[in-house]
């Protein structure tokens, strides 16, 4: 099983060689995680350090919370957060609407043009963000609308809608269209079917897709920086601040961001597990029901043959 050749090669100290080779993947993973997390940890420590300019984690000269206070007193930064929220809400509405329309068309269209449509609607995900920002800027500018919140919302939605569409498609592929047919047969109108059958089925995806759309929008930089014109958003402001005159306010903001991310990641994981558990229960119940139906059939067959 183990690498015998390697044991021979290490010669007199095979035990250490074996020990090392066995632990190597683990050591590598530890190093990788340190690489991923240490920069973030140092960035967070600097938010609590009294050293002002430039922000640094070490030497740690004293614990303070004043940078958080300074952050909440920074009016331009708060205004930029306001802009980010406005864009984010616009992106949620637009991306969910467009993404769902794309998903419905692709999953339910039985035409040869389907794969071409799919390719084009997914293409924004494979396009560099700055290209989306530039093309949207050029497009609306030619109509007399300069870069700003509106253009940034549209530019971001171009690719965020693709994310939403992929999530809706994944959900719709597990949808039993027999449910819709049954509702129609029972006399429901098309709108009733959509609102009472399709939308409830899609609800979990609407929530997750909306959340992801907002996050994508809120932290987008490369597309926004081209489409935003003279306005500003949080990421734009943050980049300018961090590049020119970094103060620990940036670090304080980072602490808040990372804390929110951790909370959200944990919530997501909890939800995923409960969903998986529920699905498992449902699947078992379905199997059970099927078994009962089969046995019923057998009983019926047995009864008729007996008669």
């Amino acid at each position: 099983m183990t690498d015998t050749t390697l044991t021979h090669r290490t010669g007199s100290i095979p035990a250490i060689g074996d020990w090392f080779m066995e632990r190597l993947p683990g050591i590598y993973m530890v190093l990788f995680f340190l690489y991923m997390f240490l920069p973030l940890v140092f960035m967070m420590i600097a938010a609590f350090n009294t050293t002002a300019v430039p922000p640094t984690a070490l030497p740690f000269e004293g614990f303070t919370l004043k940078w958080f206070g300074a952050l909440f007193a920074n009016a331009p930064l708060l205004a930029a957060i306001g802009n980010s929220l406005v864009i984010g809400l616009g992106v949620i509405v637009l991306s969910l609407t467009l993404g769902l329309s794309g998903a419905l068309l692709i999953t339910r269209l039985h035409a040869r043009s389907k794969s071409a449509l799919y390719a084009i609607l997914v293409s924004p995900l494979l396009t560099p963000g700055i290209i989306l920002g530039i093309s949207t800027l050029v497009f609306w500018n030619s109509a007399g609308i300069p870069g700003g919140l509106f253009v940034a919302t549209l530019a971001q939605s171009t690719f965020i809608a693709s994310y939403c569409m992929l999530m809706f498609i994944a959900r719709l592929q597990r949808f039993d269209s027999g449910l819709e047919e049954a509702a129609l047969d029972l006399g429901a109108s098309h709108q009733q079917v959509f609102w009472h059958v399709t939308v409830p089925f899609l609800k979990p995806t609407i929530i997750t897709a909306g959340l992801i759309a907002f996050l994508q929008s809120f932290e987008n930089f490369n597309t926004t920086v081209f489409a935003i014109g003279t306005e500003t958003t949080l990421t734009i402001k943050l980049a300018a601040l961090a590049r020119k005159t970094p103060t620990p306010e940036v670090n304080a903001l980072a602490v808040i961001f990372i804390a929110l991310t951790v909370v959200m990641a944990i919530l997501y994981e909890v939800k995923r597990r409960s969903d998986a558990a529920r699905e498992k229960v449902m699947a078992e119940r379905a199997k059970q029901a099927e078994k009962e139906m089969v046995s019923l059939d057998i009983d019926k067959v047995a009864a008729t043959t007996a008669a």
Partner: peptide, 24 residues
């Protein structure tokens, strides 16, 4: 658990991730 650990830096803002290296 490890995937959860990777999701966190994945979702941290690109600007902040870059800023952490600007500091380093």
């Amino acid at each position: 658990l490890l995937m959860l650990g990777l999701i966190v830096p994945y979702w941290v803002n690109e600007i902040l991730r870059t800023f952490s290296w600007l500091m380093l």
